[in-house]
Amino acid sequence: MKDMADPDLDVPLAELIVCPHCDAAYNLQVPDIGDKAICQRCKAVLIAPLHKAGLKIIALSLATFVLIIGAAFFPFLNIDAAGNRNSASVIDAALAFSSGPLLLLALATAGLILFVPLIRVVLTLYVLVPIVLDLPPARHAMRAFRLSEALRPWSMAEIFALGCAVALVKVADLATVGFGPAFWMFGGLVVLIVAQDSFLCRWSVWNSLEHPKKS
């Protein structure tokens, strides 16, 4: 099964699906809503359509967008030690590295916890809104979706949320630490991002981008 364009194969290419992880080829059979098509060889999920997944993802993306913007500016932790108070927002945390050569790290931190998740939300909305509304796909929607998928491992808002908890444990004996509003926003963000990821069936998105419904 090394080469898909095998001339001996008399199945049309559109009816084949190849596992992106292990390259096993199958005859395409779209599972029912709620079921999953799983690669027999490496057990990767190939297709997992869900009822109204597009609409759910759009709703979650909008919520994520609002939370990221909010979480960026409100303080997420505040500290109080012997009358000295300080509170930090995500912007502050990213700018903590801003002296000298650590500036690069500041930019990377801000990018990973704010800008990459934001870009992914915008791209997701750009791709999915026309699909859900049964409109023809937006211009360059396929490239947008590919970019969004490529950015996925670099979107680290949920890791930052756990980082808050670890930092809290570390400072707890040094001073009184309290949660700011942004901490709870990040908490919500973790749930939203995990949910959004589990609703998204990549095959369905590609398929509807390639074969838009005629309305």
Partner: peptide
């Protein structure tokens, strides 16, 4: 990356003038 984020959080949070300050070291980058 959680280690890096913890360093970032600690060094932006613990800036209590003379009492205690935490700053990132070169290892973080």
């Amino acid at each position: 990356m959680i280690d890096i984020f913890v360093v970032a959080i600690l060094s932006s949070l613990v800036q209590l003038k003379t009492l205690a300050t935490i700053n990132p070291g070169p290892a973080s980058i």
